[in-house]
Design a protein around this nucleic acid. Structure first.
Lengths: 156, 156
DNA sequence: TTGACTTGGTTGCACGTGCAACTATAAACC
DNA sequence: GGTTTATAGTTGCACGTGCAACCAAGTCAA
């Protein structure tokens, strides 16, 4: 590895770069599943995963728990609703907010993708080794909470 | 953490999700630098980092070493050339290919960003702890080489 | 009640990207 | 030679995203 500019900088050791590459390769395979099978976006999948886990919640709640920007959530919700996977009902406490929940169809899709996700994750961890995978899990959380010094709106 | 659907799936423990979140938070700060300071794209920054390290190379070479898709490289190169940061010269061996290299201006920009990147990376590693950071580095490489079972074209 | 300010959510626009299709040159084969 | 097949690089188009601006409902205080 020569370095004509003597800069001493190597992209291949730059943590943000490595993280992005790793995230991309790790995500690709699962993305293919929810995209080809249900034509879903990553954000849609994430929104669905939240509703699947927590039941009913507002868009705002999703933003907070998942650090997804609100415009992304808004559009993902619109898409999921259009596909009949999600339903909105007005909030009784706040007429601006809407309570979101998965429809039966949405629950079925989530059940399917949840299963796939679990086995995908399991396979990935197996390839890395349980020890290493657990380690990675912890470190990533550290990375996420570091630097994440709470910015405008709510996160992100 | 309740789980109404009993799916057993938790997005917060899904490795692809964690990797993406970590990558995003880790990248954000540095992205602000090359974007606000030079109006550069992430891909442009990466292409520049390659040329800065390796000197002169073709677009194809960049694709191979950095696993960036060729259309992204093509556009990044066009942009960098437009800004006068990069120059093309026809390859003597292959009239389809062009040898890319940074101009003096490009070298100066790379020197600046390279410095910034090094200190950014150093700060990040310091926050994680050297031990953990080194660990992360290794694991990420493993993640990248796993799953990366060589697809069409050259990588990506 | 009225006004200033906050907050839940949506929308317009510009932009980077993924993919497929395309041009031009090179290499392989008969 | 001539014909196929692979390769370097570009381009058109559709699409998801980031950001700023926006609307409507809530909040708080005078």
């Amino acid at each position: 590895m020569n370095d004509p500019t003597q800069s001493g900088f190597d992209l291949q050791d730059f943590l943000p770069y490595l993280l992005n590459q790793a995230a991309e390769t790790a995500s690709r395979g699962f993305q293919d599943i929810y995209r080809s099978r249900y034509g879903m976006t990553r954000t849609q999948w994430r929104v669905m995963a939240n509703l699947g886990k927590f039941g009913a919640m507002t868009a705002r709640d999703i933003c907070i728990t998942s650090h997804i920007e609100k415009t992304k959530v808004s559009r993902a919700v619109a898409g999921l609703e259009h596909e009949g996977l999600l339903a909105r009902s007005p909030s009784s406490q706040d007429r601006r907010a809407e309570v979101l929940s998965l429809t039966d169809k949405g629950l079925a899709v989530f059940a399917d993708l949840g299963r796939e996700a679990i086995s995908y994750d399991r396979a990935l961890r197996a390839r890395l080794g349980q020890q290493v995978a657990g380690n990675l899990n912890l470190i990533l959380r550290a990375v996420i909470s570091e630097t994440n010094g709470s910015v405008g709106d709510y996160g992100e």
